[in-house]
Design a protein around this nucleic acid. Sequence first.
DNA 1: TGTGATGAATAAGTCTGACTTTTTGTCCCC
DNA 2: GGGGACAAAAAGTCAGACTTATTCATCACA
Lengths: 233, 233
Amino acid sequence: MSTPGRGLHGHVLETLGPAITAGEYPPGSVLRTDELAQRFDVSRSVMREAVRVLESMHLVESRRRVGVTVRAKSEWNVYDPQVIRWRLAGADRPQQLRSLTVLRSAIEPAAAALAAKHATAEQCAELTECALGMVAHSRGHQLEGYLVHDIAFHRVILNASGNEMFARLGDVVAEVLAGRTHHEVMFEDPDPAAVTLHVQVAEAVRAGDAARAEHLTREITVGALQELDILAP
Amino acid sequence: MSTPGRGLHGHVLETLGPAITAGEYPPGSVLRTDELAQRFDVSRSVMREAVRVLESMHLVESRRRVGVTVRAKSEWNVYDPQVIRWRLAGADRPQQLRSLTVLRSAIEPAAAALAAKHATAEQCAELTECALGMVAHSRGHQLEGYLVHDIAFHRVILNASGNEMFARLGDVVAEVLAGRTHHEVMFEDPDPAAVTLHVQVAEAVRAGDAARAEHLTREITVGALQELDILAP
DNA sequence: TGTGATGAATAAGTCTGACTTTTTGTCCCC
DNA sequence: GGGGACAAAAAGTCAGACTTATTCATCACA
């Protein structure tokens, strides 16, 4: 996705980041810059830049005379898109997917309510277009085409909410939806009820009915939670 | 708060970061590493490390033959605690405070519902302790004491939700609450209704009543929204 | 006139080696 | 056993030389 390891320090990050977030180095582990530089066959300057980035993500802490120590998971900047991507790509994937889906179910209904109030005519048009695209690809194993429109739909909602914090979760939601299609079990066509709900949300937003948009979106996210067995049956 | 400019590169960040997030450099502005290094009187290695960190926050983008270009606000990692702190300290403060309060109003009710299901006995005890502390400091201009317990209360709720994404918003909520007390108008004692709501939330969580905890917390956050005139009267 | 290739200028990227500073741990003396 | 001086270790800093990618301008050619 967005930023594949640009430059040497980026390449180092693409290896060290996933290793740390996967828990290969337990909290408190000590790494030494010089040793890492040798291991990755880069200069110390490059290694230091990589460590600085990991430090800004609160994955590690660098202290004189001690070294680079790995921080506890509870301190990580779990909203950093790169951290999210690393965790989704590694052993932490299931837990990460659950956390993010719970987050979605809190954010998206609120975003839909705001979108119903603030969406421009253009955004409403985009929304119905996405919903129609989902309908068109909902049968006959067109999962990829369905996914594209599903992602676009939720991205428009988040953007139309007018809240920058919500808007920046578009990438996260995209990752979750893509993950569900690509890695989880999804042999069959999407649930027709879910497709209908998306169409109805588009209608509610266009009509400016915030309460209805919020309620319908909550039903969508409840469905997502149930897929992961987060909700009791 | 947490990480005051450690090291030279940290000092540079504490100056450049706020400047960028305050909009002093319009999107597309081009900075040159060498010039910045001279301006801050540091070596290029140090300057490069600072740029790497800004880059990981998506505040800037570094390209060969071009320089370090400032990105549009819509690309910033607005969930990065350091970015949030910089924006809260600068001209962006009002908008940042509104965005965060809207975020709170989406997250905290959901977190309270989860807390009602997952909170340990110890966490329940902490919660009532915080609520009682709020009551004790609710009269007679003991705003600082009230604030401490208010922050602790919301932090416990977020932690008790059992969701790591929610838990990591504890610092953000703390900043918002502290900001309200310190910078916004708050001459009088806190609203008695709000104090009562906190006590009731603690009770609901202890009783395991998720729906009630969620509803009561939503009332708290609605109050916060109204204070900022986000909700129409 | 427009277009594509060539080349030069530029700023980031990289490497190396020497030096400084802080922190920790140890050893010795009281 | 406690406290202070000393030594070692690792990050932090700096300066300079070199490499590489990218952009822009120029020029030849169609």
